[in-house]
Design a protein around this nucleic acid. Structure first.
Lengths: 234, 234
DNA sequence: CGCTGTTTCGATAACCTATAGAAAGTCTCG
DNA sequence: CGAGACTTTCTATAGGTTATCGAAACAGCG
């Protein structure tokens, strides 16, 4: 298979369409991403991807043996919120601030992702051997968030609650709101990615905080924390 | 088309499989429902539905011209939480209690539905002319919940918040949690329908209440309210 | 110039939804 | 009781999808 040559090679049978820019693999991913954003994964056919990339339907299978492999290749970024959670779980800042930062970052990432979270999950579930990393990442994010909540409960910042259940609720809220951002229901107000991210983190924190008036301070603290941490990585 | 005869008629060409119980329409819906629950809508083929119902693939199209029509027929129940919201929106009970009752009922209904909410929404979106009722119902539920929240804010039961955004968050949480109930992610704790329903309503109320210690009383009040209202209907 | 490796193409299999028209019964009415 | 209408099911097939196979078209190298 062609996964060996990342660069735009000159060998091989020429395309009927003539055009051959950079690496076909990257080009396919780029065109597929645009189509997934516009129409969703299931509604995008290999023929359309091929046409956009300038080759025939069956030629795409030279680079990606299955349609899901394109999605898999497209996934290998999108781990910011997990990295942030890994960085913040052992940090010394107030748990509420760290929790807000992680939840907000996760919501932003879900909104910015080219694919609806649920559509992604559906594909991952049908191909567990290829998307094991997805479930592992999700499990680890869950564990880290749960740990931060537990710290907050222990320290008294947060009210007494089951950290595991609260985490499930918090992540579910992120995922559900992501959907409303991505596909606004007719007749309802539309939200920006920033809107839903703040709404999600605000709601979860408000449900867990002992004193709701601490929220504004937590919000600004979390923004600062996220800024520092994103600077660290680059 | 055959929608005229609801009863099990004796006319028409006999089936190869011989068996012909009650109304074919109801039988198809029943078998399709079981398959949708087991495998989901997209993964269930018309051939499987036909085989379960005891006829050939194309014969199903005599009763349902499109696959989505089966889903549509299957939907025409499942409006309990909307009815409860309609009944409670103008009621005189405390807004927090009414809100809890409606959110809890909605979550229960989402969990009990034969189909994943998001899968349903996907189909509805692809066939807006057939599923207009779905969006109307959703919009009305949103409006009613929003109104209850506004009442609570005005009366001082709930903290100051945007009722519309809070409603979006509350319903998103229901939908997101429904998914975790229906398809537990590997390695994570599983929840019962009661678990997620209580978790969802608890979380939303905790995020909106002025004093979190009022929650237990609200919970029991909402249970009583829902019990009274479900008795009224039958 | 011919051999090898790389990339694309055309043809095709297997599966899906949906349609068309023939076939096989019951029902109605003279 | 028999002819035609009506109802329901069937077979066959069109057109779309993912994915596979082997041939074809090129570059580079000895």
């Amino acid at each position: 298979m062609g996964s060996g040559k990342p660069a735009g090679s000159t060998a091989g049978r020429p395309r009927l369409s003539g055009a051959a820019g950079g690496s076909p693999r990257q080009e396919i991913i780029r065109e597929a991403t645009a189509l997934f954003i516009a129409k969703g994964y299931a509604e995008t056919t290999m023929s359309e991807i091929a046409r956009s990339a300038g080759l025939r339907q069956s030629s795409v299978y030279y680079w990606f043996a299955r349609k899901e492999h394109i999605l898999q290749a497209l996934l290998e970024e999108n781990r910011d919120s997990l990295q942030l959670a890994q960085a913040l779980e052992p940090a010394v800042d107030p748990a509420a601030v760290r929790l807000y930062a992680v939840l907000h970052a996760d919501a932003v990432q879900l909104c910015a992702s080219p694919l609806d979270f649920y559509e992604f999950e559906r594909v991952a579930r049908s191909q567990p051997q290829n998307f094991g990393a997805f479930f592992e990442d999700y499990g680890e994010l869950h564990r880290l968030v749960s740990s931060i909540i537990r710290q907050g409960v222990d320290s008294g910042e947060l009210r007494t609650a089951d950290p595991d259940a609260a985490t499930t609720a918090a992540l579910s809220l992120n995922e559900g709101l992501q959907r409303h951002y991505r596909q606004p229901l007719p007749g309802l107000r539309t939200y920006t990615a920033d809107d839903v991210s703040a709404l999600s983190a605000d709601t979860t924190l408000a449900s867990l905080l002992r004193t709701p008036d601490a929220l504004p301070g937590i919000r600004t603290g979390a923004a600062a924390l996220a800024a520092v941490n994103s600077r660290d990585e680059s």
